[in-house]
Amino acid sequence: MTTSVDAPARPARSARLSPGQRSFGLLYTASVAGGLLVWQLVAQGYSSFVLAPPLEVLQRLWNLTASGELPLALAGALQHMALGYLIACAIAIPLGMLMGRVRFINDLVDPIVNLVYAVPSVAWVPFIMIWCGLYFEARVTLVVIMCVFDMIIVVSTGARNADRRLLDVGRSFGAGAWQRMRLVLLPESLPFLFTALRIGVVRAVNAMITAELFLAAVNLGAIMKQAAVRLDSAAVLGILAVLCLLGLALQEVLLVIERRICVWRPRTKA
């Protein structure tokens, strides 16, 4: 089957910092700088209503930060994002593990997960409005819906592919079910659990802004919507940059934690 390839499209990210590639650090920076320069040049050809140059965006961001508007909005946005993400983890990790390890549960739940996953999450928004209104609960619900299925799929695929031989070794050394779980399955699962967490956190950032734009416009979504109405493209681009950096930073944090915890991983991976 080719299904399992969906998920591992990403995890090789940790391999990116292999020693051979370190010399490209300069090129990375040059590429980003070059991109910004092109943006600046292109933006000069347009009115700043349509496409603001990077410097103006930076200035606008600074204004927003100095006025306290942006930090407040970000803090508000992080609340429902974090709560939704935690709920999604609490559902996805146990359910995914069960689906991966218990055939019956997998057969029972897998078609449902696939069916619901196939629907673009935004399509649930009208439904969420009916059930949870427009405010905090609704935003959390949307974050949960957007995160949970991606994570379930990664976790269950990972748990299913757990190396049988490792579990068998544990069994032949007389490890009980609990010991096998804690000493074999858990370490074996950590890498894909982290992959799931990483994919989930990016989805959570996406869901957070989707919720703020599609339900009642608050926090970052409100800033973005108002700026769009006023044709203030600098603010729109600024928020976009903040979201992008937020996603990247959270991903990076999880990567660092993963490298700290899974110290044995590079050895076995090669």
């Binding site: 490209f24 990375y28 590429s31 990016v202 989707t210 992008c244």
Partner: peptide, 24 residues
């Protein structure tokens, strides 16, 4: 090396977040 930073930057941006910009 040239495209990677842009790819990882754009992949975390959601459709919803670019909608207001693209409308402008």
């Amino acid at each position: 090396a040239i495209v990677k930073p842009w790819a990882s930057m754009f992949i975390v941006v959601s459709a919803a977040a670019v909608v207001p910009l693209f409308i402008i």
